[in-house]
Simulated assay, not measured.
Amino acid sequence: MAYKTILVHVDDAPHAAARILMAAELALQDGAHLIGAAMTGVSRFLYQNEMVDEQDPNLALHLDFLRQRARRALVQFGPHVQALGLRSFEERLLDDEPGAGLSLLARHADLVVLSQADPERQGAPLPDYQAQVLTDAGRPVLLVPHAARTASAIAVNAAGVASAGAPAPGQHVLVAWNASKEAARALHEALPLLARAASVHLAIFDAELRPGVYGDKPGEDVQRWLERHGIHAGIVLRQSARQGLLKRPADIGDALLALASELGSDLLVLGAYGHSRFRETLLGGVTRTVLESMHLPVLMAH
């Protein structure tokens, strides 16, 4: 099992280089085809509903500006991934918003690579496009933190093949496991990465609050399932901080990120929750906390 088609968002943001590097390295590891997609930012539904008059000189000028900006980003994409040694790739430009356009393209890809949500947009009334892709694409999303490296750690020969023993992204993986369908989906979608990881840990918080959900021994059932895939995973049991008079469990997003640092993890696998179109309820509390505070790549599935 491997990712054979990887989609990466291409734009002129300063952190685009880190996300493109991560996508290219994954493509090299799996011999995958990489699609670099740039969006103009104008919804395709405006064109379909004939709400845009491209003959309007002011509007035409603005649309041309948006398309030129997207094209400039794509012009840099090809040389970038070629310099890394990638041979199989293509460039796509869509007249669409990032969330809708990427969600559409993702349906014929195995993985979508995006950057962490822009911290300057936190608290905006509408969701960031990352959240929309998570809920609408039907594919796993790998989110790359803004502070991620921009220099490749993979050696590639003249034929464009990653050298033996080259470090793959996600050497030490932490999986947030709560036995939900979202967590199960994320874990399944992460199998190509887990199969070549040096270490995998399953983090279970507050197992005593849900007796019977995790098996006779918390995590044992999913641990055995992974072993049948040739993946050995350790189990880390933790209890979240209790808060309030009723001592209810606190949001474990920060605890997950702290555990990732403690274990030296370089990838977190997490199920994404939520369905509303409004940012305040689009994603669950743990998901929001991780998206806003992440310091390592996070693979999510909804």
Rank of each mutant, 00 (worst) to 15 (best):
Ile6Thr: 13
Leu7Arg: 04
His9Cys: 11
His9Tyr: 09
Ala13Glu: 10
Pro14Lys: 02
Ala17His: 05
Leu21Asn: 01
Ala24Arg: 02
Ala27Leu: 03
Leu28Phe: 09
Leu28Gln: 02
Gln29Gly: 06
Leu34Trp: 10
Ile35Met: 07
Gln48Asp: 03
Asn49Trp: 01
Glu50Met: 07
Gln55Tyr: 08
Asp56His: 07
Leu59Met: 08
Gln68Arg: 12
Arg69Trp: 00
Val75Met: 05
Leu84Phe: 06
Leu86Asp: 08
Leu93Asn: 03
Glu97Ser: 15
Pro98Asp: 08
Ala100His: 07
Leu105Ile: 11
Ala106Ser: 12
Arg107Phe: 00
His108Gln: 13
Ala109Met: 06
Ala109Cys: 15
Val113Asn: 07
Gln116Tyr: 06
Gln116His: 09
Glu120Ile: 05
Gln122Val: 11
Leu134Gly: 00
Leu134Ser: 04
Leu142Lys: 13
Pro145Asp: 05
Ala148Ile: 07
Ala151Gly: 09
Ser163Gln: 14
Ser163Met: 09
Ala164Val: 14
Ala164Ile: 12
Pro169Ala: 03
Pro169Arg: 08
Pro169Leu: 06
Ala176Ser: 06
Lys181Tyr: 01
Glu182Asn: 10
Ala186Pro: 03
Leu187Gln: 02
His188Cys: 12
Leu191Pro: 02
Pro192Gln: 07
Pro192Lys: 09
Ala198Glu: 11
Ser199Met: 05
Asp206Leu: 14
Glu208Asp: 13
Leu209Ala: 15
Asp221Gln: 13
Val222Cys: 05
Gln223Ile: 02
Leu226Asn: 02
Arg228Ile: 05
His232Asn: 04
Gly234Leu: 08
Val236Pro: 04
Leu237Cys: 11
Arg238Leu: 11
Arg238Thr: 10
Arg248Trp: 03
Ala255Pro: 10
Leu257Asp: 01
Ala258Asp: 05
Ala260Trp: 08
Gly264Trp: 04
Ala272Thr: 06
Glu280Ala: 15
Leu282Cys: 12
Ser293Leu: 12
Met300Phe: 04
Ala301Thr: 12
